[in-house]
Design a protein around this nucleic acid. Structure first.
Lengths: 170, 170
DNA sequence: AATTAATTGACAGTATACTCACAATATGGC
DNA sequence: GCCATATTGTGAGTATACTGTCAATTAATT
């Protein structure tokens, strides 16, 4: 007889898939972040953008997107919201009329300083259910995996180093 | 002297945060899924919905959202798209005029059967960069963590068992 | 039985996250 | 200097993922 027996589909096809588990953890991570940081009106993405602008004053949107691996189009909206909240300002670059440089405002620097403990608390809560040794193991494997899979994502991370020779004269 | 020294912010505040790593892995997981499954015009979420409707014929949207832990509002749109693609049909429930029951069409069952190898390939590629032993370790820890953090997410997963006594007479 | 509760699906609104495309601008080869 | 090419920011369009709210309907309470 022909091999016509269809594979019986079970929910394991969803529940045990790493992609599903990463999606769930992302949902959980965002929920915990929002809960811990609700006093600050900042999303995880907005927080990451603020940190990067803080450590790279005068960065432009395209580089920012590469340094945190967020899509350039997405980041346009994020920047707009941060600007509306007056946490950042945009200044036209003198030597390139296309570019707008990003800087923290005082309010932005202040909120970034103040939100840190809450962010740390949210990050700790994510891994809390695991034993301390398991937390380290998971974090190490996750860091490895993200790094090794970097090129698989649509917007690979390009660290500062990889960008230094771009868009500058030197 | 007063403790006025501001903590210097570095990119580690982003790169080493588990929340950021989970976000990256989710981006990577979706990118790999889309790449492997582009011939089938199905997203990861749509795939999960199809699997669940396949294993739970006649499920309604609210239960479906609980079984895969997707937001009910989000799922409304997902169902609509699956209906437009004619992979599922919605039939009004005879005993409850509010409810619409979900069933796979023949095309839906067919695409689900055909897409499986590509889904498996995408899931395997996600963990490929790790050593086999590390893959197992990560998957085990991730499964634990998602389970233990279940209540922290906005839409906790409620397995079939937990739903059996709801909305039915028995 | 009548009022209150809860449930269901739908809708509006916000925020990522991606696609492709496009004008303005800058840079390269010639 | 000129022209092809590349880059920057932006916009439209699609798809999650959440917040609310709402009408219709059903269930629970008295």
């Amino acid at each position: 007889m022909p091999n016509s027996k269809p594979t019986p589909v079970t929910m394991d096809a969803v529940y045990t898939a790493p992609g599903y588990l990463f999606r769930r953890m992302q949902q959980i991570a965002v929920a915990l972040f929002i809960e811990e940081c609700k006093a600050f009106d900042l999303t995880p993405v907005q927080y990451a953008a603020l940190v990067t602008i803080s450590t790279h004053p005068g960065i432009d949107a395209t580089r920012l997107s590469a340094v945190i691996a967020f899509d350039r189009s997405t980041l346009g909206n994020v920047i707009e919201r941060l600007q509306t909240k007056e946490f950042i300002v945009r200044k036209p670059a003198p030597e390139d009329k296309r570019v707008k440089l990003l800087y923290l405002t005082k309010a932005g620097a202040s909120v970034l300083n103040d939100i840190m403990p809450s962010v740390d608390k949210a990050q700790a809560r994510m891994l809390q259910p695991l034993k301390p040794a398991d937390r380290k193991t998971l974090l190490a494997l996750l860091t490895q995996l993200v790094d090794l899979n970097n090129e698989a994502s649509r917007v690979p991370l390009r660290a500062e180093d990889a960008l230094e020779h771009l868009g500058r004269s030197g």
